[in-house]
């Protein structure tokens, strides 16, 4: 068994499907490409495949990541090419490499989101920014400021670095709405990169080793 990490991006019609549909579509691609994927044990075996972080409906992604277990070693440079020929429209495979240790899902801590616009609200100004947030037990005032790590703007292109892990997660659409002080639709946003956190540093997942 070989654990590999796949870097890809998602665009086109794929922005219109949810996480579970994407999981199926990705699995179908792996099957068409006849990659020697490994399966889970049990009565309903499934491909050992997981994603770093579900992408909200409507968004596209720049660098996105999946973990896959293969039954045996293959030439990973070739695998990228083979997968690309079987990929659905809008899915671009960048690279595949062997990996060890924790899954991307558990190491992902933040994400960069980009969108075009003009900053109206200075979210970085203070240590506190309270918004009402829906939780299981009703609406609760929540300080979102600790989940905002950076906001930059160059030539009308805004980049937000927000908490985006299984532990802490800040909704990029909600945040962008406040930032731009206007309605924002998910399709305006690209999730450009995912990072693991090492101390104070954020490492893109393709540079990160456990």
């Amino acid at each position: 068994m070989v654990k590999v990490r796949i870097q890809f991006s998602k665009d086109g019609a794929l922005r219109f499907i949810g996480h579970l549909d994407f999981l199926r579509v990705f699995g179908q691609m792996l099957r068409r490409a006849e990659l020697p994927v490994a399966f889970s044990q049990g009565f309903n075996p499934h491909i050992l495949l997981s994603f770093a972080l579900p992408l909200p409906l409507g968004m596209v992604s720049g660098n996105d990541y999946a973990d896959l277990t293969l039954a045996h070693q293959v030439n990973l440079l070739d695998a990228v090419k083979v997968l690309q020929t079987h990929a659905p429209q809008g899915l671009t495979l960048h690279k595949i490499w062997e990996t060890e240790g924790r899954n991307t899902a558990s190491v992902t801590a933040t994400a960069d989101y980009t969108l075009a616009g003009e900053i109206v609200t200075d979210l970085l100004a203070s240590q506190e920014y309270i918004i009402p947030k829906k939780t299981k037990s009703g609406v609760k005032d929540t300080n979102i400021r600790p989940d905002i790590f950076d906001i930059t703007e160059t030539k009308g292109q805004i980049t937000l670095r927000l908490a985006a892990g299984s532990g802490r997660f800040l909704n990029p659409v909600t945040t962008a709405k406040i930032l731009l002080n206007r309605e924002v639709s998910a399709h305006e946003i690209t999730r450009a990169e995912l990072y693991a956190r090492v101390g104070e540093a954020f490492i893109p997942l393709d540079k990160f080793t456990n």
Binding site: A13, F16, D21, P88, Q89, G90, H187
Partner: peptide, 20 residues
């Protein structure tokens, strides 16, 4: 537009782009 499509449920039904 993407914006209009996102106003409907399961927009992928209406955009084509399926494998094959």
């Amino acid at each position: 537009s993407n914006e209009a499509l996102l106003r409907v449920e399961k927009p992928a039904r209406y955009v084509g782009g399926e494998v094959n």
